[in-house]
Design a protein around this nucleic acid. Structure first.
Lengths: 225, 225
DNA sequence: GAGTGGTCTAGACCACAAA
DNA sequence: TTGTGGTCTAGACCACTCC
């Protein structure tokens, strides 16, 4: 095993087991180099990786300390609906309801596409979608065939490396939405709002509405790498 | 500016701006070392950090490539309710409803505390909570005063560095829950289930129920570090 | 002032996978 | 086979900050 990796994993194990508690001091680089019989640069690399993953904090002159865990943070993965439903073994279909060019979308500057449609799983409505796409950022969208392919799926291949913000809520559907989802206005639904930026400018904004009894989100947190 | 940092940031900017697209090849370490006039180890460090943050992928003999962005992943932060409500400028209070020792909790092994209560904001019910705490993992919990301090707040200071899994759903409250939240059974609520492990063993499990019109979750994704 | 982390170098050898 | 990343070393100097 790599010296650096070995050092990193042994220290991570000491922290995750609770043996070393938040605020405890980790031995200095020199001490660890002597203990593991390797160069200080190797220890530095291992501790730097632990610091990058948030497990320890390093302060000059003071030393390296076990970090205090984040209050509660976790990584949430929102799948592409076509893939999600296919993974469940159900037939997926996208039904375009409307497509128009709006002079300006929600918080988008300039012209945008406004798209509405339904994601179908096994012949039943699974989610409603209303989306804006900024044509100034993704001009090719004007030529895409959104009757055939869902806009989310199409965008995956056309908007590299963005920032995004998701807002998750429980809402009651409107009468029209309830009818489309074949449920009642008193049935809880999960609303997912996602805004996507590139270089500070909004690329797309989407609102998806799911039946609460057919969809939930999972977020996981794992200390260290 | 550090050579390593400068290299890292210039490459990250090229990727985030869309100039370099997913799958594109990044110059080799030797080329970058020559271009920036520094040692190859310095370039290696910069590229290693970019790889750790997921912005590039590195393959021996093949080279370094701009990574394909994750489908949709984001970091969600679930605040401590006492802090969240205080940050809103409202008075926070925890009301214990019941506390008992169960022989075995949900998916916990061994004896556990079962705690139910209500988080109050500005005098009104904000969230319901039902929690199990594994006494085998956190024996001090037996002596904590959960009438005075909410279990989540107490645990923050007593369970270092764990793994966690959150499940988020939209649900309808039962008649009893609706009454406690001063809402109706037809009003959508957000349910948050969190299970917390340490060293592979469940430490605590909590289910929180929020009025959909008073609470939402936010998750953000930012490429790179 | 002194101890700690932060960074860099020049060189070396290894491991791996693509050609 | 060979080019690429992966890792390590021994040493050096710097930057910060706690004492």
């Amino acid at each position: 095993m790599n010296p650096a990796r070995r050092i990193r994993e042994e220290i991570a194990a000491s922290i995750q087991s609770g043996e070393w508690r938040p605020g405890d001091r980790v031995p200095t680089e020199q001490e660890l180099a002597a203990r593991y019989g390797c160069a200080r640069a190797t220890v530095s690399k291992a501790l730097g990786e632990l610091a990058a993953s948030g497990l320890v904090e390093r302060r000059r002159k003071a030393g390296t300390f076990v970090a205090h865990p984040p209050v509660h943070s976790a990584v949430m993965t929102v799948p592409d609906l076509a893939e999600l439903i296919a993974a469940r073994g159900e037939a997926y279909r996208w039904e375009l309801a409307s497509l128009e060019t709006a002079d300006a979308g929600d918080d988008l500057a300039g012209p945008a596409l406004r798209i509405e449609g339904v994601h179908m799983a096994a012949g039943e409505a699974f989610a409603l979608e209303r989306r804006f796409i900024a044509l100034g950022e993704v001009p090719e969208a004007a030529d895409a065939d959104f009757a055939r392919v869902a806009p989310g799926t199409w965008l995956l291949g056309h908007i590299p490396w963005t920032q995004a913000r998701h807002v998750i809520r429980a809402v009651n559907p409107t009468r029209k939405e309830a009818a489309l989802l074949t449920t009642g206005v008193g049935a809880a639904c999960l609303e997912l709002d996602r805004t996507t930026w590139r270089a500070g400018r909004v690329v797309t904004h989407v609102r998806q509405l799911f039946r609460g009894d057919r969809f939930d989100l999972v977020a996981e947190f794992n200390a260290g790498p």
